[in-house]
Design a protein around this nucleic acid. Structure first.
Lengths: 150, 150
DNA sequence: GTTACTGCAAAGGCTTTGCAGTCTG
DNA sequence: CAGACTGCAAAGCCTTTGCAGTAAC
C-alpha cells in the first residue's frame, strides 16, 4: 500500500516517463480514483469529483482515464457490463482475455479446476462459480504488433 | 459436449421448466449461440442470424438473450466492454463479482496467488496477468432476496 | 513559444421501453 | 382463446470525435 505522497510521486514519475503533462485535472482524477476502491466507472468518478471540482468536464475525465490506462498507470477491469457477451457453456471453465482485441478464449485445465474458494469468502457470500482469468495479448495481436513496426 | 439433439432437448426442457413458450425465434437464437464459441455480443449474434432469418428483430434477440440468462440457460460473461471500470491497483489480486448488483470486491489470497499458467498457454500467448474470479451473490443482495419474500 | 490538453457540442452505438398485433399451449 | 411473445419506433444512457481556446514545459 502506498501513502499519499508516494502515490503522488509515482503518478508524476509515470506521467513524465510517458511524456504526459501534469495538469490539475489529471492529478484530481488520479487521486479520486485511488481513493475509491469500488472499481468505479467513469460516471461514478465524475459524480465524486464534480461536487468539488465542477470545472472538470466529463469528456476530459473520460479521455484522461483512457490515457492513464494506455500508459499502464491504472487498469480497466473486466465486468458484467451493459454490453453483454453470452455463452451457452454453463459449466466452469477458464478464460484468456486479449486486452487488445478483447477476444475471449476458453481453455480447460484440470489443475486450475482444483482451486478452492477461501473459507472466509464461502461463509460470507453465496458462491455460484469460479474461474481463472488470464490477461494476455493474443497471437494475432502480437503479429500485428510486429508488422506495425516499432 | 452435447450433440444437436441433446442440446435441443435440453433447451426445450429448460423452457418448459421455467414456463417459457417455445417459439421459432427462441430456437434459432439458442442454436446460433450454441454454434458460436466466441462469446458473442448481441450484435454478433444478430449479424449471424439476420442473413438467414431476416424477420427476427434485434429487440427480440436482446430480450430473448436476457430471458435465457435469467433462467440460467446461458451465461453472461465478464469482459472489458465499452463501459469501462477502473482500478489504480496494478498488482494482481482476485475478484469477487456479484451477479445481481455487479459489485466487484477485491480479495487477497496467498494460496490463489500461487496458481500457474499452463505451459501450452504461456508458449502461445503473451501473459500479462492472472486472477481468480468468483461469481457470487453478495451479502447485501442476499438480504434483499430474503426481505423480498418468495 | 510550441505542443499537448481541456471543454463544449454534436454524433454515434447499444440497450431499454411501450404498445399493438400475433402466436403458443 | 388467454396470456405470453414479437416487432416497431422512440427514448435513454455512455462514449467518442472535432474544434477552438488554454495551459504546461
Amino acid at each position: 500500500m502506498m501513502n499519499n505522497n508516494e502515490r503522488l510521486e509515482y503518478f508524476k514519475e509515470q506521467c513524465r516517463k510517458h511524456g504526459l503533462k501534469i495538469t490539475m485535472q489529471r492529478l484530481i482524477i488520479y487521486q479520486a480514483l485511488a481513493d475509491d476502491r469500488s472499481h468505479p466507472c467513469a460516471d461514478d468518478i465524475y459524480q465524486r469529483i464534480h461536487r468539488e471540482y465542477p470545472n472538470i468536464s466529463y469528456d476530459t475525465l473520460n479521455r484522461t482515464l483512457l490515457t492513464f490506462s494506455r500508459i499502464g498507470l491504472i487498469k480497466t477491469i473486466s465486468h458484467h457490463g451493459p454490453k453483454r457477451r453470452f455463452d451457452t457453456v454453463i459449466a466452469d471453465h477458464h478464460h484468456l482475455c486479449c486486452i487488445r482485441c478483447h477476444k475471449i478464449i476458453d481453455f480447460e485445465s484440470e489443475e486450475l479446476d482444483q482451486i478452492t474458494v477461501p473459507d472466509r469468502i464461502k461463509d460470507k457470500y453465496t458462491i455460484l462459480g469460479k474461474k481463472v482469468v488470464i490477461e494476455c495479448i493474443c497471437d494475432e495481436c502480437m503479429k500485428k504488433d510486429k508488422k506495425g513496426g516499432k
